[in-house]
Design a protein around this nucleic acid. Structure first.
Lengths: 133, 133
DNA sequence: GTTCATGGACTACACGTGTAAGCCAATACG
DNA sequence: CGTATTGGCTTACACGTGTAGTCCATGAAC
């Protein structure tokens, strides 16, 4: 189940579209556009359509004709894309060093008491349990 | 010292150049190119020069003529750029939610016991010392 | 059935980015 | 001093990206 498919490069704006698709699929262009405009009313339907087409061409999405309209489906999982983007970011901005990166985030943003606790718990578990659901 | 200067958008490749500059400045183009090729021999001097010029135009670097050559100096600090890039990444990939992001990294990469401890310490301090002006 | 609206395909276009080459002036070398 | 070299300035060019508009077919509304 881990075919390690090559994740295409997803641009900034394309990420928004992908997230709209991941939010629930299969989904028609209309539904996706609805989600996009809900989050940000400045989205232009035509723009969204162009992005959808590009994502299909890139191999990030697939579609299936359903009558006169398409239903889109992701070909790459959010996990995969998140992993790829994170890796790239880590490399580019922190030269690949994880600790400075984590330090930066923990420092830069105030975490609530709860978040800290949860994160701490995550640290504990990550070591002892290392299990992947 | 915190003029909060607008950080220009630094592209992937430009990051490499900036890091070479941050590594020690002022530095001549020659020195910078040396550092770049040291890290990655495929760097072409002309390409590096183009990038330097672009970074100057963008306002990320400044230079001062020193005889027939320039010495470059960053106009934006690594801290600033790291912060900006991190913010953008966090927004794009994790919708701005810090915790899932941290969770992802803690999960995805195996941290050594020491790193975990350090990170945990960081969490403790972050809270107890939370000096927020 | 004719018309309008909806949805997809194709086209447009400027700016960013990666990757250099060509040109020109000053300097170092002989 | 003349020449080769070095370093900067200008130009090139293809592909990616953000942002749409136009064209065309099909289904919905009358």
């Amino acid at each position: 189940m881990n075919a390690q498919v090559k994740v295409p490069r997803i641009s900034e704006t394309e990420w928004e579209v992908m997230r709209a698709v991941w939010a629930g699929h299969p989904a028609t262009a209309g539904e996706i556009i609805e989600r996009l405009t809900a989050a940000d009313p400045t989205w232009h339907p035509k723009t969204a359509k162009t992005l959808l087409a590009r994502l299909v061409r890139k191999g990030a999405l697939d579609y299936e004709a359903q009558g006169r309209r398409y239903v889109y489906e992701p070909l790459v999982s959010e996990r995969q894309c998140v992993a790829a983007a994170s890796e790239s970011f880590l490399e580019r901005v922190f030269g690949g060093s994880l600790k400075p990166m984590l330090a930066h985030f923990v420092e830069s943003r105030r975490l609530s008491r709860e978040e800290m606790d949860e994160l701490r718990a995550l640290l504990e578990n990550g070591l002892s349990k290392g299990k992947r659901p």
